[in-house]
Amino acid sequence: MIEIIREERAKHGMERIVRVRVVNGALSGAVSDALAFGWECMTQEGEFKGVALDIEDAPLRVACGACGKEFEPEDNSYMPCPTCQEILGHDILSGKELYIEEIEADVPGDTDEAAASGSASCPRP
């Protein structure tokens, strides 16, 4: 994560990073609480000190192996189809993902930002 954030910081000319938003699927294998704790440890000091981490837990979403009905099982172990009650052979549609969705940061000279703050008319060197 740190490597990706460094790359994106350089690419977009970010200065202070405020917040990183991560999407963690129910079946990704990564535990959100552990991720949050690890992030807290990593951001005590150094270049990312104080940067917030928002974790969005994405549910498991499957298509029934018998009738194709798309649904989100209430738990990951017993997952009967709400339409036909089938419990076997469901296809996973989403829930395995683990990705950085967005980074909130100060980006100097950004046109949208400049317009919003009323400084669009300032001459640029």
Partner: peptide
Amino acid sequence: MSKTVTIVRNV
């Protein structure tokens, strides 16, 4: 003021 940049990169 800060800005949100969409990334969408697999960890």
